[in-house]
Design a protein around this nucleic acid. Structure first.
Lengths: 215, 215
DNA sequence: ACCTGAACACCGTTCAAGT
DNA sequence: ACCTGAACACCGTTCAAGT
């Protein structure tokens, strides 16, 4: 538990490494300067010399993870499929780093995070025939949807027992009107399936006729 | 700043009231037991007697706000319009209580929050011809989209200057390929417009042909 | 039943002092 | 240039003691 005994000289790199370890295990909230110092076997104040303060330490951590994310390649035959595949790939990247989204979110770095995917997305939207402001809207709609979805999803995992619970409503009410619906809402939510489904719907809507379904 | 001097007897109600005030002004993070005690003119420990601890105090606050939200009435002629209007109404409710979503989110209460809207939503989806599992999926897709969108949106307001900034990419790259797109991505994001647009697209997609755009 | 102060175990951060 | 301990200003929470 106490980290390396062979402490020669503290290093910004070692601080980041140890900090990353703590975050990976128990999330950013568990990263305290004092625990980190204990882990490294140094005085708390040494850390400040190397990384400034807790906030910029977390900044550096996020920056580093973002840089390591790896590029996204669209898959599928139709433009709609390829756009949706970019969204799914991004979601999987985020799920590989469970604490990343929350940290990115808190720091207002979602644009930064989305930047590589944006390039790819624009290419596919062009292929689908979207140009100019409409393409920009589509990019942003997909971006917000992905980030928002993963945010909600991740959170649902941490608080798995949704208090009251959806079923409560459907036990008493309207269950006879549509029993299949009632049953479906009782079943636990399959996040992956819901994501795929909603992205497909969103993309279909975005690529559809310009006015949407006005009438 | 120091609250009522006419302190006779502390009351759970007064504690909640004062706590709500602090949260409304500076967000839940600013609500500390000690500041709250100062505001109320009592010892910190008195608060514990009335509300248990900080966590259950915040629980009570959320519960109370949720109960006061008021019902949602769908507007519009077509089912698609009416479903979208429910989403927009929910968004506005959330925006009226700027700290609510984050708190609901942290507590795993999004289902609870969505419950009244769910009833309305199901009715409209039925009217649109969706039944059973497909209707359940649509409900959940809309729910996650709304919560996610507002979460992202709210956050963007707190950290307004998105570091690097989207435009960086489009200054150097591909700007000549689609200058209108580049310009659009440089403009600040209009959250209301994007929400309306993406909800319309999502709903259109959800109400569309069952298979989505497979081929 | 309600309120109190003292105390505990934590935080992040600063600063003067060491080598 | 790098590391240290002491100290400051905060936290949430518990507990024995008061009325």
């Amino acid at each position: 538990m106490k980290g390396k005994e062979t402490r020669t000289r503290l290093d910004r790199e070692q601080v980041l490494e140890a900090a990353a370890g703590l975050v990976k295990q128990h999330g950013p909230r568990a990263l305290t300067m004092r625990k980190l110092a204990a882990e490294l076997g140094t005085a708390v104040t040494s850390i400040y010399w190397h990384v400034g303060n807790r906030e910029s330490l977390l900044d550096a951590l996020v920056e580093r993870t973002l840089a390591d994310l790896g590029e996204i390649r669209p898959r599928g035959r139709t433009p709609a499929q390829r756009v949706a595949s970019v969204a799914r790939a991004l979601r999987h990247q985020l799920r590989d780093h469970p604490h990343l989204i929350a940290m990115v979110h808190e720091r207002g770095l979602t644009d930064r995070m989305f930047l590589p995917a944006q390039r790819v997305l624009v290419r596919e939207l062009h292929a689908a025939g979207l140009r100019g402001a409409r393409a920009a809207d589509a990019v942003r709609a997909v971006q917000v949807h992905v980030v928002g979805h993963v945010l909600v999803e991740r959170n649902r995992e941490r608080a798995p027992a949704q208090r009251p619970g959806e079923h409560r409503l459907w036990d008493a009410h309207g269950a006879d009107a549509d029993p299949a619906l009632a049953r479906a809402l009782t079943r636990p939510l399959d996040a992956e399936r819901l994501f795929t489904l909603s992205v497909r719907a969103l993309v279909a809507g975005l690529l559809g006729p310009p006015g949407g379904s006005r009438t």
